[in-house]
């Protein structure tokens, strides 16, 4: 009788332990796979900044338009991308040309997706930009774009938001150049 009770306990204990081990390892494997794909996307996401328009719109204002292009692997979970704000500086960082922000443009994250951005440089920043252009040979000024993008991943049990730096150098040509 005693050995029967013991074997019943042993059987229940072993079954519970084996089932729990199997289930927890399978669940961990699935979670690791999802999480690794998220980290992979985050690790390889890169941005390329391209100036598409530069125009003097009034005597003391200039309009700049860029496309921020995201590249990297296709995300395995639905994700969206938003460029929050950016700073403009001369390429060597010595002249600061202001802080700009978008009006909350959010796009679905995919390889090659582009976010249109624009900034109006005016006042003191415009004067600094003009001075930089005057000092540069041929009026071509290399500038640095320092921004931050928010990537939101819709994970199975909630949203994960990450801020990624967006840095690019571009050259301003002649006024009115596209």
């Amino acid at each position: 009788m005693k050995s029967e009770i013991l074997s019943w306990r042993q059987l229940t204990g072993r079954s519970l332990l084996a089932a729990s081990l199997l289930l927890s390892v399978v669940l961990l494997g699935l979670t690791e796979r999802n999480y690794a794909a998220f980290r992979e996307t985050l690790r390889h996401i890169q941005f390329e900044i391209r100036l598409v328009e530069f125009q003097q719109i009034e005597s003391q204002r200039a309009l700049l338009r860029w496309h921020a292009r995201a590249s990297g692997p296709a995300p395995k979970v639905p994700s969206s991308l938003e460029l929050l704000d950016w700073h403009l500086r001369s390429a060597d960082g010595s002249v600061y040309l202001g802080f700009y922000t978008t009006s909350e443009i959010e796009v679905a994250l995919a390889p090659g997706v582009e976010i249109p951005l624009e900034a109006v440089v005016e006042g003191n920043n415009f004067a600094k930009l003009r001075r930089l252009r005057e000092e540069s040979p041929g009026g071509a000024v290399p500038l640095r774009f320092d921004g931050a993008a928010r990537v939101v991943f819709r994970a199975p049990r909630g949203k994960v938001s990450k801020i990624i730096p967006v840095v690019g150098v571009f050259t301003l040509g002649a006024m009115g150049e596209r």
Binding site: G13, R14, S15, L17, S20, L21, L23, S24, T31, P156
Partner: peptide, 25 residues
């Protein structure tokens, strides 16, 4: 936790079940 396919409560249940299994052994 956000990337897990199951709710977090299941993880607590699993931990107790593991203990229970060992309690029998």
């Amino acid at each position: 936790l956000l990337f897990s396919p199951v709710p977090s409560n299941l993880a607590y249940v699993l931990l107790v079940l593991i203990g229970l299994g060992m309690g029998f052994l």
